[in-house]
Each structure stands twice: as C-alpha cells, then as structure tokens.
Amino acid sequence: MQKREAGVLPPERRRALLEEAAAEFAESGYERASLNRIIRARGMSKSSFYHYFDSKEALFNAVVGDVGAALASTLDLPSPAELADGDFWARIRRLTARLAKAAKENPVFATLPKLFYLPDAPRSLARTRARIDDWIDGALEAGRSAGAVGDDLPASLQRELVRAVLWVMDEWSVANMDDLTETELDRLADAQLEAIRRLLAPSR
C-alpha cells in the first residue's frame, strides 16, 4: 500500500505544536505522553493532526529533528575540521558557553536533552544519537591533529572515554535538573569540560 503523503503545517503552527509535544514527552515519557493533550492544547483535532503526521513516533522524531536543527543553527555549530584551526579548547569552551546561553533563553532547548534519556524512547532516536557521536569523533580527531589532544592512548579508547563522560554526566544532570540551580548547572558544565580536557591532555 502506498504511504500517504503528509501535509505541511505553516512554520509557526508547526513550531508551537512541536514545543508542546517536547514538553509533554519530557514530562510524561514517550509511551505515557498523551497525543490528545498535545493536540488539544494547540486547538487541533485528531483528523487534522493525522493530516500532518502519521503517528506519535513521527511527531517525536519531528521534535528531535526540528529542535535539534534549530539548536545547531543557534549555536552556529562548527564542523569538526574547523575546530583544528586555532585554539581547540578555547573553541570548545565558547561552544559550551553558547549552548548554556541558548538553553537559558529558549526553554525547548533545555527540554531536548531530556528526550535522549527517556527509557521508552523510540528506537529511531538512536540515529540522532549516532550523529552526535559522529560529530564528537570528528572533534576528537581535530583535537589530535591540532596537538590539543594527546596521542598516547588509542583514538578508539579516547572516543569511548569522551562519550562516557559526556553521556553519563548529561544523563545525571537531566535527572537532577529540577534540584539544581543555574549556577550549579553552569559549574557542572565546566566540570564536564575540564574532566574531558584532562582525560585527553597530551603527556608531558
């Protein structure tokens, strides 16, 4: 059977719907998230919703895709190769500072990380996480080529160490976000970056 072609929501209506959905998924989890609550909050009927999205999973994927792309644009995310030109760690620090600023200024950017740690998230989320890991791998290679990252450990081990620190600390921060002040969150971000820098520092 031929797949139905979805309609296209006007940009502002799509943005509002996806922000509503992001909040619902983050609060309730994927399985328990109520499609009825989401569309009712945006004044949509189910028939109207299904004109634009095939399923709740399609909506979830749109949230991750659109919000992730908007965040990357806001950050002016550099390609990994660009990080090799100049002071590698200064560029990384500026990037993390822009990320923290974006999350404070736009609540949906702060909501996005919560979706990555939902225990019942769709498997399709793994593709997005893999793209993030690919960028991390590229950044690590750029750091090695710039001499800012040591080469005394195998690159494959360094990748695993960086991923472990990033994802574990991010997951803990997301789980405890409601109990942390902005100052504490900023300190955690600084501590995360410093932990990675020390792990990867060239041998003296």
Rank of each mutant, 00 (worst) to 15 (best):
R187F: 07
W135M: 07
L35R: 02
W167G: 01
I38R: 05
R127W: 05
A62Y: 01
R4Q: 15
L180R: 05
G68Y: 02
R187T: 01
S48H: 10
L115Q: 11
E194T: 12
A201T: 06
L200A: 00
A90F: 00
A164K: 13
I196L: 13
M44G: 08
A148F: 07
A16W: 00
T181K: 04
W135D: 09
G29W: 05
D186N: 04
Y50E: 03
E19W: 02
L188H: 08
D151E: 07
A23H: 06
A22W: 04
R198H: 03
Y30P: 05
W135H: 11
L18G: 08
R14T: 08
K101W: 02
S47C: 10
P113T: 04
F25Y: 03
A26E: 01
D170T: 10
A84H: 02
R98S: 08
L112W: 02
P113L: 06
T128Y: 15
K56A: 03
L99M: 13
A84C: 14
K46W: 14
R42H: 06
S156V: 15
V168W: 14
S73P: 00
E184I: 03
D87V: 02
I196F: 01
K104I: 15
S79N: 12
A139T: 00
L115H: 10
L71N: 00
A126S: 13
D87P: 02
L77A: 07
A81R: 12
S173E: 10
E27G: 09
A155E: 11
L180Y: 00
A175K: 09
Y50K: 01
A164N: 11
A110K: 09
R13F: 00
W167L: 08
A62I: 03
E141L: 11
A69E: 09
R98I: 02
I132V: 07
P11D: 09
S28H: 11
L18C: 15
S47K: 10
R204F: 12
A201V: 02
Y30N: 05
S145A: 14
H51F: 10
G150N: 14
E5L: 10
R91N: 04
N176E: 01
P11I: 14
R131C: 03
F109L: 05
V108K: 08
A81H: 12
T111N: 03
K46Q: 12
L112S: 03
F109H: 07
R37H: 12
T111S: 06
A26Q: 02
D137M: 07
A70P: 01
A90E: 11
E141I: 12
R197T: 04
T74K: 14
E12N: 05
K104L: 15
A84L: 05
D76Y: 06
G7L: 07
T128N: 03
D133I: 03
V162T: 13
R15S: 15
D85T: 12
S203W: 07
G43F: 08
L118D: 06
Y52T: 04
G68L: 03
S48W: 14
H51Q: 14
R37F: 01
K114Q: 06
W135I: 00
D178M: 15
A130F: 06
R159N: 11
A155V: 11
L153A: 13
A164C: 14
E31Q: 08
A102F: 00
G43Q: 05
L35K: 00
P11R: 13
S124W: 09
V174A: 09
D134Q: 08
T128W: 07
A90S: 07
E160T: 11
F116D: 10
K101H: 14
A23Y: 11
K3V: 08
